[in-house]
Computed example of a mutant assay.
Amino acid sequence: MTQYTIAVVVGSIRKDSFNRKLAKALEKLFPTEFSFTQVRIDDLPLYNQEDDASPAASVTRLKGEITAAQGVLFFTPEYNRSIPGVLKNAIDHASRPYGESVWNGKPAAVIGASVGPVGTALAQQHLRNILAYLNMPTLGQPEAFIHNKEGLYDEAGNIGEASKKFLQSWVDAYVAWVKQNQA
């Protein structure tokens, strides 16, 4: 059986991040041949092209984790109708220097949780535009704009019954997407 490692990039560095909680809960819905690397982005310096020749150790680690993965899951909050700066910074680091992007060809999916009823719709759209430029085949349907409200999780932190069928179908679509888009 082929094993798939998925890089999980959470665009929030908040200790009690809704999106980190969603990422952990969704991992439990994947088949056993999928494993996950939680990609750390909170220790990256601000991107500066002058550092491309000798990147910080945290940047080298980021690039290595993405390179080793067969796919990438992005969990993004929405800040001011877009993605957080910390997420854009990580994307920029891993895409540089020009022509050496580690994102190239990695099958991706975008999801996000928010306290608002429209979830992270605008942030996800902005992120999809970036991923298209980076040549990341990105799952288009189903879209998942998650309203972080009571009942989303059960007492054990698993996806609650009211959302489980939809989120399982989203996971299943991404699993098929990763398998379809392997080089």
Results as ranks from 00 to 15, higher is better:
Thr2Ala: 13
Ile6Leu: 14
Ile6Pro: 11
Val8Gly: 13
Val10Glu: 04
Arg14Trp: 08
Lys15Ser: 08
Lys15Gly: 00
Leu26Asp: 09
Leu26Trp: 12
Glu27Arg: 13
Glu27Leu: 00
Lys28Glu: 05
Phe30Asp: 01
Pro31Gly: 15
Ser35Cys: 02
Gln38Asn: 15
Val39Lys: 12
Val39Tyr: 09
Arg40Asn: 15
Ile41Pro: 10
Asp42Ser: 15
Asp52Lys: 09
Ala53Arg: 08
Ala53Pro: 00
Ala56Cys: 09
Val59Trp: 14
Gly64Trp: 10
Ala68Thr: 02
Leu73Phe: 06
Phe74His: 02
Pro77Glu: 11
Ser82Arg: 05
Ile83His: 09
Lys88Asp: 00
Ala90Gly: 08
Ile91Gln: 11
His93Leu: 01
His93Lys: 05
Arg96Phe: 08
Arg96Ile: 06
Arg96Val: 08
Val102Lys: 15
Trp103Asn: 08
Asn104Ala: 14
Gly105Thr: 03
Lys106Glu: 05
Ala109Arg: 02
Val110Lys: 07
Val110Gly: 06
Val110Trp: 01
Val110Leu: 10
Ile111Lys: 06
Ile111Met: 02
Val115Thr: 14
Gly116Tyr: 11
Pro117Met: 15
Gly119Lys: 03
Ala121Glu: 01
Leu127Gln: 02
Arg128Thr: 02
Asn129Gln: 05
Pro137Asp: 06
Pro137Thr: 07
Thr138Ser: 10
Glu143Cys: 08
Ala144His: 04
Ile146Arg: 09
Ile146Phe: 03
Asn148Leu: 06
Lys149Val: 05
Lys149Cys: 09
Gly151Val: 06
Tyr153Asn: 03
Ala156Ser: 09
Asn158Trp: 02
Ile159His: 12
Gly160Val: 02
Lys165Cys: 00
Leu167Cys: 12
Gln168Thr: 14
Ala173Val: 00
Ala173Arg: 04
Tyr174Cys: 03
Val175Gly: 07
Val175Ser: 07
Ala176Gly: 12
Gln180Phe: 09
Ala183Ser: 12
